[in-house]
Design a protein around this nucleic acid. Structure first.
Lengths: 218, 218, 218, 218
DNA sequence: TATGAATGAGCGTTCATTCAT
DNA sequence: GATGAATGAACGCTCATTCAT
């Protein structure tokens, strides 16, 4: 069977969804390299072979999770935007920071999976599907930004679009450099308070600084 | 046999060094999961069995690389500090931004390897050695900061120490979220300029904003 | 469901024909074990499940190709015989050598597939269909021989029938032992001219010697 | 570990020998495609992984069997030649026919495995090792022929070397086209005596005709 | 009768790890 | 301490076969 690709990574296919969901759950429990296709199949309640009808390999599944997850995040923003009115830069910043909070609280894993991009995912995932997924996200961000600033003159759309990337970067970095005083959730003997990162607050704080610099630069 | 641990991760042992060096080279060429112990042994010019005298497993090697690499970065800073005098907050900021530039340009891989921490390294690396390495880094940062601000009143040492973490986080995030318009270094068809990250400039810019916020807050 | 067997190996059924044709094409391109039912189905333009309405498995398809192919060869001889008159042993030999030429030039694959008989086909093909196919060929040869020698006294029909087997054997052997100076059509560095077999000429020559020995033995 | 290749296909290595021996036994019992690496390993009394230290894959093992087996046959001939004296063409023919008898009786499987060359072995076996093995055989035949005809004037060495190939071809063909009245050693209902091949006698007879044609052509 | 998504047993192969030398 | 051949558990993945539509 052709690998399902009418909708990038079989996004709407219920079986592909079950598989992505199972893998998503597993990555919260088990190190990436210890997740086996067998385990994903069992968790998803499908046959092992079925996975390969939808995904090339394990990396492909996680690339799909990353892309569909972020896409979902964008679609939620779109829905919210349809119901509110952003009147000025202060409200825009406020709106974007609220999204950051949502992202860090509800999409942490999605953001973290991007850490595997360079060293794992990209080398093995389907490049076509990856491009499709990224392009879809790119277009969604574009729509979101257009809608968000439609009432605000004097805003550089390009900078706001770019801010979405920086938002992800900040979050991802904070997650990767947080908890350096633990290994596998086990605290070190020596207290190292300055090594600890409060991911939510510090991400929002840093992104806020960034937004100020592009929105309110003199 | 006891795994060599008098000096964390056999830091000074020439054989352990060759092994770390080989693995470091390989990660710039090959996806993490495709790096085998055999390949590392061959590249290092040692027998496969020898690796296991120094490291528990592959993750252990990369954890060691990450820690000894960053430790080396800190030691270089120490050396520099011994030769200069930092007189005020402006010079302090200047100094820290210069370090950021060094870090992003010469230690990219070291920073990137931290992306594997959560999903790969911590679960398999030797927790004792990891703790030792992190503690050593913690103490180095502590010394650096003390030395750096010794002439500047009115600086919160804790905040500067923490800034080192934020520096790493920013860099790591930028690296993970850069080049989203490529897969495996192959550019997408559709141009997506706002998705592109200039890692060096934007990291320094963002870290600069952060330093301003802690050094010059009203 | 009964596998279609009114006519051995669904010989006249257009779908079975398409399947055999697809497999025949594939064996000229791909090693036997690398030919999958999926590939055959795709090439044939039928669903994978459809194949199993006509053939038990891959071996069954190739057994069918071998038998229907050789049967077709025999039927062509029959047609030719209907239009000519063989008057003596010299003409008989001449006629048989012409058939050999046809066989080696147009039915090479059919002959070669017999190489798989022992180690692959017979163990998995449908024995009933195989017997049917072979019997049909046996009867065809019988008819051909009767027709061919009807004007020639003093010829042992049994020996001529047997010559058909020897003809196949010679051809098959020559094909299997030809080109030993190549692997996968790549010539060896060292020239080994005496290892090279000119399949057409040498097959005809050897078969000619054989026919002489049975037709003109003193 | 490098695949052992100092001596083509680890010919002298006792472990490689055990593996080839196990595979050789299995092919007399089980269809080629039903022979698994697991079964070979078990039969050989080695770990599955060990097989891959010596052979690339299953095809490689059988290519090795075919080549080392025939090489052994040649070496035996060499030994015999060292002890006898061939004085004329009649004795040469006699000698070659005796070798044919040995070949058909003791090396049937070796000859038969060549049937897999085209459709299985060559595509997957190690081409370097294959070339090495064939070259070694080529040189052995060359030596044998030189030694065999050293006392006989007026013999074309090239033709005698070529006769070794034809000998193999005849044998292989006879084996592949023998017993067409059986499937898996089960006799058909209808008796088809002319389809039956007496492999030993008919091979020797046909090769004898061939030798006459090259040795005693007028 | 044709289809093709789902299946899952079982394959070849890998590779971290061991341990006799 | 270094070696590297042997190991074998465990992996990803295949693909013939089924069967509901």
């Amino acid at each position: 069977m052709e690998i399902e690709n009418s909708n990038s990574y079989g996004r709407k296919n219920p079986r592909a969804l079950k598989i992505r969901k199972a893998a998503y759950e597993l990555i919260t429990e088990v190190p990436f390299e210890d997740i086996t296709m067998t385990a994903i199949a069992e968790r998803a309640g499908v046959a092992k072979g079925t996975i390969f009808n939808y995904f090339r390999n394990k990396e492909d599944i996680f690339m799909a999770i990353s892309l569909t997850g972020y896409q979902y995040f964008c679609e939620e923003i779109e829905k919210q935007l349809a119901e509110i009115e952003i009147k000025d830069k202060v409200e825009l910043k406020q709106f974007l920071l609220e999204q950051t909070q949502t992202l860090v609280q509800e999409y942490q894993i999605i953001i973290l999976i991007n850490s595997l991009r360079r060293f794992s995912l990209e080398a093995h995932a389907d490049p076509i599907q990856t491009e499709e997924g990224r392009t879809r996200i790119f277009l969604l961000i574009n729509n979101i930004v257009k809608e968000a600033v439609k009432n605000i003159p004097d805003v550089d759309l390009s900078e706001i679009r770019h801010a979405f990337i920086i938002q992800g970067a900040i979050l991802n970095g904070m997650l990767n450099f947080g908890n350096l005083d633990q290994v596998n959730n086990i605290q070190f003997n020596m207290a190292m308070p300055d090594m600890v990162v409060n991911v939510v607050d510090e991400s929002i704080n840093l992104f806020s600084l960034y937004l100020d610099s592009i929105l309110f630069k003199k």
